[in-house]
Simulated scan of single mutants.
Amino acid sequence: MDTLWQYQFRIILLGDSTVGKSSLLKRFTDGIYSDVADPTVGVDFYARSIDIEPGVKIKLQLWDTAGQERFRSITTSYYRNSVGGLLVFDLTNRKTFDHVREWHREVSEHILPHHMVYILIGHKSDLSRDRKVTRDEAEQLAADLGIRYVETSAKCNSNVERAFELLTRDIYELMKMGEISTRDGWDGVKSGLTAKVLYPAEEEAEREKSCNC
Rank of each mutant, 00 (worst) to 15 (best):
residue 154 A to M: 05
residue 163 A to D: 03
residue 4 L to V: 13
residue 128 S to M: 11
residue 118 Y to F: 15
residue 122 G to Q: 06
residue 193 L to T: 09
residue 120 L to G: 02
residue 45 F to Y: 15
residue 213 C to S: 09
residue 191 S to F: 00
residue 154 A to R: 03
residue 112 L to M: 08
residue 211 C to P: 00
residue 115 H to Y: 14
residue 121 I to P: 03
residue 56 V to I: 15
residue 193 L to K: 15
residue 129 R to H: 12
residue 80 R to S: 09
residue 199 Y to H: 10
residue 34 S to C: 10
residue 131 R to N: 02
residue 114 H to L: 13
residue 3 T to P: 05
residue 161 E to A: 11
residue 198 L to N: 04
residue 171 I to H: 05
residue 77 S to E: 14
residue 72 R to P: 01
residue 194 T to D: 14
residue 146 G to W: 12
residue 68 Q to I: 10
residue 121 I to L: 06
residue 153 S to L: 03
residue 111 I to R: 00
residue 163 A to F: 01
residue 33 Y to G: 05
residue 193 L to P: 05
residue 55 G to D: 07
residue 90 D to K: 10
residue 103 W to F: 06
residue 212 N to Y: 14
residue 53 E to V: 04
residue 38 D to Q: 13
residue 180 I to E: 04
residue 181 S to L: 06
residue 18 T to L: 06
residue 45 F to K: 07
residue 130 D to A: 13
residue 66 A to C: 03
residue 100 V to S: 00
residue 196 K to R: 14
residue 60 L to Q: 01
residue 162 R to M: 12
residue 79 Y to W: 10
residue 64 D to T: 02
residue 123 H to D: 05
residue 35 D to G: 11
residue 79 Y to P: 07
residue 17 S to Y: 01
residue 99 H to Q: 15
residue 107 V to C: 09
residue 100 V to F: 03
residue 16 D to I: 04
residue 63 W to Q: 06
residue 189 V to D: 08
residue 200 P to A: 09
residue 97 F to N: 08
residue 64 D to Y: 09
residue 174 L to P: 01
residue 140 Q to R: 15
residue 2 D to L: 13
residue 6 Q to G: 10
residue 32 I to K: 04
residue 132 K to Y: 02
residue 138 A to R: 00
residue 30 D to C: 02
residue 139 E to S: 04
residue 88 V to F: 09
residue 18 T to V: 15
residue 157 N to M: 03
residue 88 V to L: 05
residue 181 S to E: 14
residue 75 T to L: 04
residue 41 V to W: 08
residue 183 R to F: 10
residue 29 T to W: 03
residue 189 V to C: 05
residue 213 C to A: 07
residue 1 M to S: 15
residue 154 A to G: 06
residue 211 C to F: 15
residue 4 L to T: 11
residue 210 S to W: 11
residue 61 Q to L: 13
residue 163 A to K: 02
residue 166 L to P: 00
residue 191 S to D: 12
residue 43 V to P: 03
residue 193 L to R: 14
residue 185 G to Q: 09
residue 140 Q to H: 14
residue 8 Q to R: 12
residue 72 R to F: 06
residue 126 D to V: 05
residue 198 L to F: 11
residue 96 T to K: 01
residue 118 Y to R: 07
residue 106 E to K: 12
residue 95 K to T: 15
residue 153 S to F: 01
residue 122 G to D: 05
residue 160 V to K: 03
residue 24 L to W: 02
residue 92 T to A: 09
residue 190 K to C: 06
residue 3 T to C: 11
residue 161 E to I: 07
residue 59 K to F: 11
residue 190 K to H: 00
residue 99 H to M: 15
residue 92 T to W: 10
residue 70 R to S: 14
residue 138 A to H: 04
residue 193 L to C: 07
residue 102 E to D: 13
residue 102 E to T: 11
residue 135 R to S: 12
residue 121 I to H: 00
residue 53 E to G: 01
